[in-house]
């Protein structure tokens, strides 16, 4: 459904030094610098897949998403979405995709969502009867009722987001591009949006590409994850494989009957912390059984736990360090 090959986007940005001198210099002789927002990215997404798109702010997620929608012309590379080249923005292509942006809204601020829905129905050429049926179906799924006839400015953020989703899905698109659809929502509203997206994908077989800063969105919805870092595609595959790639070690947490010095754990993996009776170690997976056996043998262990490090912590670390 989505094929991307060697996709790149280079922006020209003005380079300006701070202060009056810099401003004058910038005014007299403009200096530009090329910034590579996306570099040589390739992937394919099959029909019906739900794929998470991860990356820090400025990693190139939104730029890629906008090239897939046809909003931005790629600098190099090929994109085919639903059999079309997005940048041509052919009406047949536009009828098959939708873009939802968590921080921007298309609903008319002063009017109830129903008015915006009627505008969208006319623009997409949906008959009044079909529009009515689809609105009632989708509003059932989204648990929207009288909110549809209340001015948008009087709705809560969660209700507004659900109405935005309804407006974006009225024309039954095959491909959904969702850019932070749960941004700013409370935990309950996030969960409802998530459940809706999963249901919608199941019912319609739509292809979904989702970016989010909330790891819970990704873990709940997307079996497959693309991680983009500084414009490059760093990972394409299941989320747990990303975890093992980022941090191959397992976490071992020990609770001992009596405090033991840090030196006692030499040769038993990497020691994260050791205070009083609680000890945290990182151990290579192939050494895990041997190390656990030795620990149980040498110390009086009250409790022992083996975990994968939390994925959002790992990705957070990756972004902070800025190295891949």
């Amino acid at each position: 459904m989505i094929e991307v090959e060697s996709l790149s986007k280079i922006y020209r940005v003005a380079d300006k030094q701070p202060g009056l001198g810099g401003t004058l210099q910038h005014f007299m002789r403009r200096r530009h610098r090329d910034v590579c927002a996306v570099s040589n990215v390739s992937f394919t997404i099959a029909r019906g897949e739900m794929v998470g798109f991860l990356g820090a702010n400025g990693a190139g997620k939104t730029t890629t998403l906008k090239m897939l929608c046809g909003l931005i012309y790629p600098s190099a590379g090929q994109v085919v979405v639903a059999g079309h080249q997005p940048q041509k923005r052919h009406p047949d292509f536009l009828r098959r995709i939708t873009l939802v942006m968590g921080q921007k809204q298309q609903l008319l601020w002063d009017l109830p969502p129903m008015d915006s829905l009627r505008v969208n129905a006319a623009v997409y050429g949906i008959s009044d009867r079909d529009a009515k049926r689809r609105i009632s179906e989708l509003s059932d799924l989204l648990e929207l009722g009288e909110e549809l006839t209340r001015p948008v400015r009087k709705l809560s953020l969660g209700q507004r987001m659900k109405a935005e989703l309804l407006a974006a899905l009225l024309h039954q698109p095959d491909v959904l591009f969702l850019d932070e659809p749960t941004l700013g929502l409370d935990v309950n509203a996030q969960a409802r949006v998530r459940k809706f997206l999963a249901d919608y994908n199941q019912r319609t077989g739509a292809t979904v590409l989702l970016t989010s800063h909330y790891m819970a969105d990704i873990t709940a919805l997307c079996p497959r994850v693309l991680l983009i870092h500084q414009g490059n595609l760093f990972h394409d595959g299941p989320l747990d494989r990303l975890a093992s790639r980022l941090a191959p070690e397992r976490h071992v947490r020990l609770e001992l009957a009596a405090p033991v010095g840090a030196e006692a754990f030499a040769g038993l993996g990497r020691l994260d912390s050791c205070c009083d009776c609680e000890v945290n170690l990182r151990v290579q997976p192939d050494e895990l059984t041997a190390v656990v056996a030795q620990l149980l043998d040498r110390f009086e262990v009250r409790d022992l736990e083996v975990n994968d490090p939390p994925i959002d912590q790992l990705i957070g670390e990756l972004f902070r360090q800025g190295k891949v």
């Binding site: 906008k66 046809g70 909003l71 009406p91 536009l94 009828r95 939708t98 942006m101 921007k104």
Partner: peptide
């Protein structure tokens, strides 16, 4: 300025008309 032109450009209708 606000980036809502994106919504207009993604509608299957002439953007100048809209």
């Amino acid at each position: 300025r606000e980036g809502t032109l994106d919504f207009v450009l993604l509608k299957p209708i002439d953007s100048q008309f809209w």
